[in-house]
Design a protein around this nucleic acid. Structure first.
Lengths: 167, 208
DNA sequence: AATTTACTTTGAAAAGC
DNA sequence: GCTTTAAAAAGTAAATT
């Protein structure tokens, strides 16, 4: 397959998966000999499904035999959000329970939320990264929850609104 | 009965052997860093907890010792960067940082958020600056903290900039290069923090 | 001194060492 | 544990211009 399909990287000594990139939608897939694959970079579920179909179509075009329909599972959603406030990270680090804040190593406060089970990287600018979610609604729930929590712990300065964006 | 005792004895002896080796390492690194006995003792306590919890398995003794020293410095507020500590081990900063995070998560080691003021004492004394300069730098940092200027920034860089300003105002000028070097940051970082501090705190610096 | 590129952190899966 | 992939956040660093 590494010889029949163009734009492919394959070095089994380095990694057992074959790397195949799609230009549109812009995603990257790791394809394994077991028939399983990992697709990263999709901005939405729709884009992901479209990508999987296009990858399969492309592989078929180059003579790779594929039977049956693919089973797609979302394993991790990475999102960024902006609360449009300033966060007192020192205070938050002191008051929140499962957190780690080490500004000499990373500027964000790392907060592990139990429900939904996600990890948030919170920055003083009010922007953040939410990762580890399997469903989109978990992301929204987590953002709402952390915003309310920071608010009640009085770790927030100059409040405005709350919005979001997904990768 | 006999077998159980034997197993326990074996485990105890392996812990003992590990501890003996670790204490040598701790002493070696601690002395190279010029750390007081209190820090080394605290680090030894942390390391002992780690061994007893089996956290050293699959990791080098040296890395965990280094991580214990870092945690101890943080608890006792003796400013040392991870790089300073890691330079005396075969492991890199990333590996020591990983062990440090493990200690925080798995042991009940509480470490306060690092305070830039702790770096003022170290940088100031390394440069032979007066107590007045260090006091002024600490005050500047306190104001910066209250303004929310320090969040997310490297405390060493903040302290370096505060020292630079305080030394200027006290006629004990040191170059940004000198300060950056002992602080373990680049001149660019010192300059960026410096600009931010004088602008946001409206500090007047007369030329020269 | 400004730009560009690159690394730090987080999460999860894949197959194999 | 490690290897590889992607993307965001903000800080720091190093190499160019």
């Amino acid at each position: 397959m590494e010889r029949s399909v163009p734009n492919v990287e394959y070095d089994p000594d380095q990694f057992p998966g074959l790397i195949f990139r799609l230009e549109t939608p812009k995603v990257t897939s790791l394809i394994f000999k077991s028939g399983k694959m990992v697709v990263t970079g999709a901005k939405s579920t729709e884009e992901l499904i479209k990508s999987v179909k296009r990858i399969i179509k492309t592989l078929k075009k180059y003579g790779i035999k594929i039977t049956g329909k693919p089973k797609i599972q979302i394993q991790n959603i990475v999102a960024s959000a902006n609360m449009h406030v300033h966060v007192n990270l020192d205070k938050a680090a002191f008051l929140l329970e499962n957190n780690m804040y080490e500004p000499e190593q990373f500027p964000g406060l790392i907060f592990r939320m139990d429900d939904p089970r996600v990890v948030l990287l919170i920055f003083s600018s009010g922007k953040m990264v939410i990762t580890g979610a399997k469903r989109e609604e978990e992301v929204y729930k987590a953002v709402k929850k952390i915003f309310d929590k920071l608010n009640e712990l009085d770790c927030i300065k100059q409040v405005e609104e709350e919005e979001e964006l997904e990768i | 009965r006999w077998r159980k005792w034997q197993i326990r004895a074996r485990i105890q002896s392996s812990i003992d052997r590990n501890l003996a080796q670790a204490m040598n390492e701790l002493e070696r690194i601690g002395n190279l860093l010029g750390l007081p006995k209190s820090v080394k003792d605290e680090a030894a306590l942390i390391y002992r907890k780690a061994v007893e919890k089996g956290l050293v398995r699959g990791r080098s003794i040296e890395s965990v010792v280094a991580a214990s020293i870092y945690a101890s410095c943080r608890r006792i507020k003796i400013a040392r960067t991870l790089d300073e500590i890691a330079q005396f081990t075969k492991a890199n900063r990333k590996e020591v940082a990983r062990c440090y995070r493990l200690l925080l998560r798995e042991l009940n080691v509480e470490v306060p958020v690092s305070d830039p003021k702790d770096y003022v004492t170290r940088i100031g004394s390394l440069l032979g600056l007066s107590g007045a300069v260090m006091k002024l730098a600490a005050e500047t940092l306190e104001k910066a903290k209250n303004t929310g200027l320090t969040a997310g920034k490297d405390p060493a860089g903040l302290a370096a900039a505060a020292i630079y300003i305080a030394a200027l105002l006290n006629d004990e000028r040191r170059t940004q290069k000198e300060i950056a070097q002992v602080a373990g940051v680049t001149e660019v970082t010192v300059r960026n923090r410096y600009k931010e501090l004088i602008q946001e705190l409206k500090i007047e610096i007369q030329n020269q």
